[in-house]
Nucleic acid binder design. Structure first.
Lengths: 153, 153
DNA sequence: GACAATTAGATTGCGCACAATTGAAATTGC
DNA sequence: GCAATTTCAATTGTGCGCAATCTAATTGTC
């Protein structure tokens, strides 16, 4: 006989899925960031790349990818757009010709100052105390790392 | 004078960003889901649409969009692909010709049975107790809702 | 009834994400 | 020393995700 909504369906209910919570929260962050990053001329993934480079400069594409969990199929065109925007320079490593090193330009360095107020705006939008956010972040990172551990079988 | 890594940079450190935790966790979920959903012939966003439809059928595109926080620019092509896969049928509402109602086909209904073990696989991959996951989910949903509240100014 | 404003969905264009493939360069294995 | 393997980046193709624009249908106001 046909099944109406039964207890057996509980695991398949959208609102019970932590993955959807994470998925929809990621989009919500993206939408909050959009107007802030528009002023910097960056998309959100580009902003993440710039965060990596502001910490350490002149690194191969691979390092950026490992940090952000992204591959060259995503990063290569993204970095070319950052280069077209005069924020980074791409040069082949002379030590290892396979590597492309990504260095910030003067403009790329300078953009860090304009980005300095972004985290505060996000904090305000999240309407949450810093300790609470840090605790949540640590939990989510731990979950992410457990998920990533499964992917490598 | 030039600034090296200083305390002022702390908010701009990648690992301090909850948004990156959420962003990277979403991608990690996607990668864990991929092999499971491949067997169903679905992508992750398509799976979310099916979750909505398995709860209630024959709903306008708008309702699906509100549930998933997605607009017609995303859903129209996605739903056309689900229709091409014979999982849904798209029909104009006779009451309101602007609306397109999405109904499951027999195949679409049947797929629910094949999807029934997916949540358990995800639970196993997350390597976390159900109460912990529920608590995290609720926190993330609350954060998402606060972020979404800001977007509408 | 006429007409402005609103609403639903479709379309276009751009930028991720990622699988799969390619090609060049470096490393290894013997 | 050199073939086999591995590594790195680039490329191709598919599918989101969203802003902006468009068309058609409905609603509100008079």
């Amino acid at each position: 006989m046909p099944r109406k909504s039964s207890a057996a369906d509980t695991p398949l209910r959208l609102d019970n899925q932590i993955c959807f919570a994470v998925y929809s929260a990621a989009h919500a962050f993206n939408r909050v960031y959009k107007p802030l990053l528009d002023r910097l001329g960056l998309t959100y993934p580009q902003y993440l790349v710039m965060l990596v480079l502001w910490e350490r400069d002149n690194v191969p594409v691979k390092d950026i990818g490992e940090r952000l969990f992204l591959d060259s199929g995503t990063l290569t065109p993204l970095l070319k757009r950052l280069e077209a925007a005069h924020l980074v320079k791409r040069t082949r490593s002379s030590e290892d010709e396979r590597q492309v090193l990504i260095a910030l330009t003067a403009q790329g360095h300078a953009l860090k100052e304009k980005a300095r107020n972004v985290p505060h705006s996000i904090l305000a939008a999240s309407d949450c105390s810093v300790p609470e956010l840090v605790a949540m972040k640590d939990e989510i990172v731990a979950l992410r790392d457990r998920l990533n551990a499964v992917i490598g079988e």
